[in-house]
Design a protein around this nucleic acid. Structure first.
Lengths: 206, 206
DNA sequence: GTCTATATCAGGATAGAC
DNA sequence: GTCTATCCTGATATAGAC
């Protein structure tokens, strides 16, 4: 005697997992409900009982991914108390490894940006749950080290992250590796020198 | 007595113009040939006589946009001989004005990134004709001013552009203005201070 | 070389049995 | 609550007249 509006959480999960595969591969408009159905192992009618339409399914999926941070966990490693140059380099290395090693992250980035015109709320969820925490963490870190003499920690944090994101965009997302080549370590070391240049000497070692 | 394979350049232009509207508005998969046909004022058969299929039309369009730099002319203003802080600020201001004021630029950015998985060659064309010239110009500029004491001009150029692009992404593309607020002038002034901090004093005025 | 008209098929969404 | 089977709209692409 289940009530008429009860839905199976298991199927719900299966649908979202299937949807993730398909949407990540083809984007919103390119994704096919039939493929999602096949991947999820449920019937089409079940999908439409769980979600009113394709758009709702898509937004539910992206919201879940953004909240779970299944991709793009920038703000890990709380080794706050380390030497600044080491902390920053580890932070950057961790983020780049995470992105470079996982095609899903790149695809997710492409989709969030590509659909940000049609789905502004999803873009905002991304900013809120992924970009903002990263900026805030770095800002706080830089501000908590007055010896660094950084006049505007938030802008420094944005410059740091922005340089990394731009590097990822050029090299991995836009396939520009041989058009604008740049060694990762050179970028990181020079970037640290630039940002920490007010300190007496800059020690960079992993 | 025109040969059988001659095509009208006027119609070709009209088709590409119509395609631009539609593709920019809905992306590749979302774009409808019927709409392109209507906007171009030609028949559907004519489109398929000029371009083998939808994909070819799309790539032809993007290539044209990238070459013509109809959007995103980052590397204008050759006031190379000015004071560095002034030059850089003017450079950044010009680029931000160009982007912020023109929704087409934002849409183009979204599309290039969004479709960079399915159309890697288009992404590379974008890097080659838009990103690379910008990086090269800035690198040369910074390298030609030894008094700036910039150890690695190319990385400094990338940091500068990367910070700007990231700012554009967060604020305009991803609609994150009220989630991660930042005044444009504050970003620019602090960024200049950061990059030019090795000089005696930094003068920033527009 | 361009048009009108149409073939062909796949998409999202639903009706009705169980 | 989930399935099978189906509707129907709208898509890309083409055939044939002019």
């Amino acid at each position: 005697m289940t009530t008429a509006r009860d839905l199976s959480p298991e199927k719900n999960e299966a649908i979202l997992d299937g949807a993730m595969q398909e949407f990540l591969k083809h984007g919103y408009a390119g994704a096919r409900i039939d493929k999602i159905v096949a991947a999820a192992g449920v019937s089409k009618a079940t999908v439409y009982r769980h979600f009113p339409d394709k758009e709702a399914l898509f937004t539910a999926l992206i919201q879940r991914m953004a909240v779970r941070k299944e991709v793009f966990r920038l703000q890990n490693l709380q080794l706050f108390e380390k030497e600044p140059a080491i902390f920053l380099k580890k932070y950057a290395t961790g983020m780049l490894d995470n992105v470079a090693g996982d095609p899903q992250v790149l695809t997710f980035l492409r989709m969030i940006i590509g659909e940000s015109g049609r789905f502004p709320e999803l873009a905002r969820a991304f900013v809120k749950s992924i970009e903002k925490p990263s900026i805030d963490l770095l800002t706080q870190y830089l501000a908590s080290h007055p010896s660094l003499q950084i006049a505007d920690p938030e802008v420094a944090a944005r410059a740091f992250i922005g340089t990394l994101i731009h590097f990822v965009l050029l090299k991995y997302v836009l396939h520009g590796e041989d058009i604008v080549p740049m060694e990762r370590d050179r970028l990181l070391d020079s970037l640290l020198t630039l940002i920490l240049s007010n300190t007496a000497q800059v020690q960079v070692s992993s």
